[in-house]
């Protein structure tokens, strides 16, 4: 055992759980800020959308697809210069937020896109017939009507990001992933690997439970 007592291990795990949550929620926030407008634009510029612009739609769709098909491990490395530029370092929790956000943004864009596409065309048409502007339709119709589905999509993003953050932890990113690699793998402490895995499972369960409940509360259908 590396640790004198379980208490010490407990505090380490607690601190790194906090780091994981910090990275994941910051990355969720940033990727939503980037991905949400992209998703909205993908919907409204699509065929039959309220601001049909097929060329733009096709280009944006391709960009998003390229972003999504990038393997995360490669993305972290590829983004090191960029991360250094804006954070000053490419190591640690705060630096990890950069590749996490960029990896999740195209995912969020697609999640928002598919949620907004579920909104009944007739409802949008009624809003157009009442004289709504594009902005009013986005903010007062599309997003509120799709809210439950958007929340489930964001929950899915959070869960994916927990997985990604653990991966980032193995290459100097901090959080529960780094505990698993540093203490568990390099110093052969299996009990810490098991503990991190259990913690990750619990985190995912709790987040999914919260997401489901918020979505249920929001859904008036």
């Amino acid at each position: 055992m590396i640790f004198q007592n379980p208490t010490q291990a407990f505090w380490l795990l607690l601190a790194e759980t906090g780091n994981t949550l910090y990275m994941v929620f910051a990355a969720t926030l940033i990727s939503t800020i980037i991905g949400m407008p992209l998703g909205v634009i993908l919907v409204i510029t699509d065929k039959g959308g309220i601001k049909e612009k097929l060329q733009l739609n096709r280009i944006l769709g391709t960009v998003v697809n390229i972003g999504r098909s990038f393997p995360f491990a490669i993305l972290i490395v590829a983004l090191i210069p960029f991360t250094r530029l804006i954070i000053g370092t490419s190591l640690g929790t705060t630096a990890t937020i950069v590749p996490l956000s960029i990896a999740a943004a195209p995912f969020v864009a697609r999640v928002i896109e598919s949620s907004l596409k579920e909104v009944d065309k007739g409802i949008v048409e009624a809003a157009v017939a009442m004289g709504s502007s594009t902005w009013e339709i986005i903010t007062k119709v599309l997003i509120p009507e799709a809210m439950a589905s958007i929340i489930l999509g964001i929950t899915l993003t959070v869960v994916n990001l927990i997985g990604y953050s653990a991966m980032a932890g193995t290459v100097g990113g901090g959080g529960l992933g780094s505990v698993a690699i540093q203490y568990g793998y390099y110093r052969y402490d299996v009990s810490l690997i098991i503990a991190t895995v259990i913690l990750l499972i619990i985190l995912v369960q709790i987040i999914q439970w919260i997401g489901n409940n918020i979505a249920k509360a929001v859904n008036k259908k």
């Binding site: 007739g122 409802i123 009624a126 017939a129 009442m130 004289g131 009013e136 007062k140 009507e145």
Partner: peptide, 30 residues
Amino acid sequence: MRKKIGMIFQHFNLLNSRTVAENIAYPMEI
């Protein structure tokens, strides 16, 4: 001009996320 033309539909097309009062409020909000 559309604000002065009311329209009703076969499938009603109400906003599911809004109450009855909020649905009626929508055209007035805009």
